[in-house]
Design a protein around this nucleic acid. Structure first.
Lengths: 265, 265
DNA sequence: CGAATAGTGTCTCTTAGACAATATATA
DNA sequence: TATATATTGTCTAAGAGACACTATTCG
């Protein structure tokens, strides 16, 4: 038997798009859309679809995200291959589960354009990851709850090691108003005097991503972790990996926090 | 376009079978076989093959291991999906890489029966995992070196957390002669007196796996880790997860070590 | 000033790592 | 007894967690 003659399964991808919704108490969100057409019509589900000839799986994920939810994803990560021949009643389908962490800002446009796309809350109840779907169903179809669980676990591992590796911190949003305040004297000795354009770049994040206080960053990490984190311990964890700016937040009660920018690349 | 009409890739599995070869200085080994037939004939490679209709991927892995190397594997674990449409010059093939940790004892029969199956040494040189193949080739065909690297990393993560989770410790082999010595008085107070059959079960491993000293266990972990481990630190790591028997090793110079058995289930 | 938030010093507990002292076998 | 190996005690350094004290802003 030559290798071309082997039976071939259909190969599909499913993707759990996770984000942090920037409210005053940020929360972990999952992108879902309302199914139409073939199977489970009307039910909320995570996007998925079949690989096309010559396509890479990550590209399939990005295409499926555009088609089903009008969302431009970023960098899908493989999670697991679901290979039970009977998992899909429509035939022999092997599904490669993916996750993609996408800043809320990139999802908002699609959310306002379309009514069949939502971001739902992901919560832990007695040790399990649960999704708060609209409507009467409490679970995603097929084994898709399992994919979400894997995606959340993967994201938590990533965030336990590095400060906001996926850039889910977004200032300039309801509840998280962070205006800035330039110091009369720079904090460090002999530091460079920034020109206006540089200040803008730092503050607006044109070069280095948005600036944020450690409290804002911690709230994002708390949303991902699903539990409160220690203030001082968190600071000592992440501060070595960040760039401290000469600016502070403004506009709220209490002592203003120093603004940081990410220190990757 | 209906879903059945999508183009379908061939789906294959590849498997890196890792083992610890029990010599006086145990070492980490990889199962390879000599390719025949279609592509890269004569080159040493890790086993792989195509999924058959209705088959689960893990079963494909076990079947392929039997067919190509006469080896009965155990519990394959998924590592990664290699999906570059041009990775195989023969056509569109998606490969799901697996690893399987198998005790050396289970591999020996196949090794003596067949000349085209070998266990080769896996070593770290300047931060990279390297395989010492027989013959003139220094690398595995296609992207299979990458699979071995992933497999070794995965195994190291597992072994960093638990004592010999895959049961690669095998006593009763050249260089690791571990006979036993029953104590005149049990070490613990009020401990149960073991009958002969129980003693045999403990020592021969009929129930709980083979008994071993902490030094033997540490040498296995050192083979996996690819570096020496601290004696006392290692003991404190693993001892809480083991069952101490009332027996000690025998037959070598120096103080005999206490025999332990695994404490899972 | 009081309330609220940010920043930091310090204490404890745990653990890895290192070293050494003690224990028990063989030759 | 000399040697080799196993076992265990202890010291140190690093890090997580907890707590509290100080700092800086707004109202």
């Amino acid at each position: 038997m030559k290798w071309e003659e082997f039976a071939r399964p259909s190969v599909a991808v499913d993707v759990a798009v996770l984000t942090v919704v920037p409210e005053s108490q940020p929360w972990l969100g999952l992108l879902v859309y309302r199914r139409a057409g073939d199977a489970h019509p009307g039910r909320w589900d995570i996007p998925g679809g079949f690989v096309q000839a010559g396509e890479r799986l990550a590209d399939t994920v990005l295409r499926v995200l555009r088609e089903k939810s009008d969302v431009r994803g970023l960098a899908p990560t493989q999670l697991h291959v679901f290979d039970d021949p009977k998992r899909d009643e429509r035939g022999w389908v092997i599904a490669v589960a993916h996750m993609d962490a996408v800043p809320h800002q990139r999802l908002q446009a699609a959310m306002t354009r379309r009514d069949d796309v939502r971001i739902v809350r992901v919560q832990d109840s007695d040790g399990r990851v649960r999704v708060q779907l609209p409507g009467r169903f409490r679970r995603l179809p097929w084994d898709h709850d399992e994919i979400v669980t894997m995606a959340v676990e993967r994201l938590r591992e990533r965030y336990a090691r590095h400060p906001d590796p996926d850039g889910l911190t977004s200032s300039s949003d309801e509840g998280m108003t962070t205006t800035t305040h330039a110091p009369t004297v720079p904090t460090w000795d002999g530091g460079p005097v920034l020109g206006d354009s540089q200040v803008h770049a730092l503050v607006a994040g044109a070069e280095t991503g948005p600036a944020f206080t450690l409290t804002e960053l911690r709230r994002v990490h708390e949303a991902v972790a699903g539990r409160p984190l220690q203030r001082d311990t968190f600071r000592r964890m992440v501060e070595p990996h960040l760039h401290r700016t000469a600016f502070t937040s403004e506009g709220r009660v209490g002592r203003p926090g120093v603004l940081y920018v990410r220190d990757d690349r």
